[in-house]
């Protein structure tokens, strides 16, 4: 493979550039995926049947913790990519690892949140509202879970193979994915939780 050295490593080969553009287009599709969930959520938001409404079950504390965790993880992965561009492999790996730990913590709080909902009578099958609430949150949570494994694999590869155009490219694309999940969360935070509690 020919390598172009005037660009950051992750853009080094033709295939690398294709991967990055392709991933952006995938993110475009993800925008529509979440938009559809949001459209459904807003439609069903007040259709609570005999179950509870959002204001009755949402708790600000876990939501805030989740938000801070995810925002910080988005920051640390940004630092990771920055370190990668400076060629500092160990710093990069550390930042990626911190990101994943923050993601894991997020997932932990989210699991707590889900059990809480089930506890207060807002399980999946209770009403249209609870169904779409948990499906939307769950879809985001599933994305984070996949991200945890994917990120782990990438750290392992960087450790073994070093920073090559290939591993740098994967790391960069992973960072795009992670930032994107943060963006989705911002919308969940604003338009599901805060709007619901307003």
């Amino acid at each position: 493979m020919k390598t172009d050295n005037s660009l950051p490593l992750e853009y080094g080969t033709e295939q690398n550039k294709l991967n990055i553009l392709g991933f952006w287009i995938f993110l475009g599709a993800e925008v529509m995926l979440f938009a559809t969930l949001f459209a459904t959520y807003f439609t069903l938001e007040h259709r609570t049947g005999s179950g509870p409404a959002g204001a009755e079950i949402f708790e600000i504390t876990p939501v805030l913790i989740e938000t801070i965790l995810l925002l910080t993880s988005s920051f640390t992965i940004g630092l990771g990519v920055h370190a990668m561009r400076l060629g500092r492999k160990n710093a990069m790996m550390t930042f990626f690892a911190v990101t994943l730990l923050l993601g894991l913590a997020f997932l932990g709080v989210e699991i707590y949140e889900f059990t809480h909902y089930v506890h207060v009578g807002a399980g999946l099958q209770v009403s249209a509202f609870t169904g779409i609430l948990l499906t939307t949150l769950g879809t985001h949570g599933a994305h984070v879970t996949v991200g945890l494994f994917w990120g782990l694999f990438i750290i392992m590869q960087v450790k073994k193979r070093g920073l090559t155009p290939e591993t740098a490219n994967k790391s960069f694309i992973f960072s795009l994915y992670w930032h994107f999940l943060d963006v989705v969360w911002i919308f969940i935070f604003s338009f599901i939780y805060l709007k619901g509690m307003m």
Binding site: L27, G28, S74, F180
Partner: peptide, 28 residues
């Protein structure tokens, strides 16, 4: 996030990337 963290505008495919995002947001 998009501009600062995701470096949406840094590569030669900037136009394609932004078109893709704007189009997605509009349709969303």
């Amino acid at each position: 996030q998009l501009v600062g963290f995701m470096h949406a505008g840094e590569s030669e495919d900037k136009v394609a990337i932004y078109a893709n995002i704007y189009y997605g947001i509009a349709i969303a």
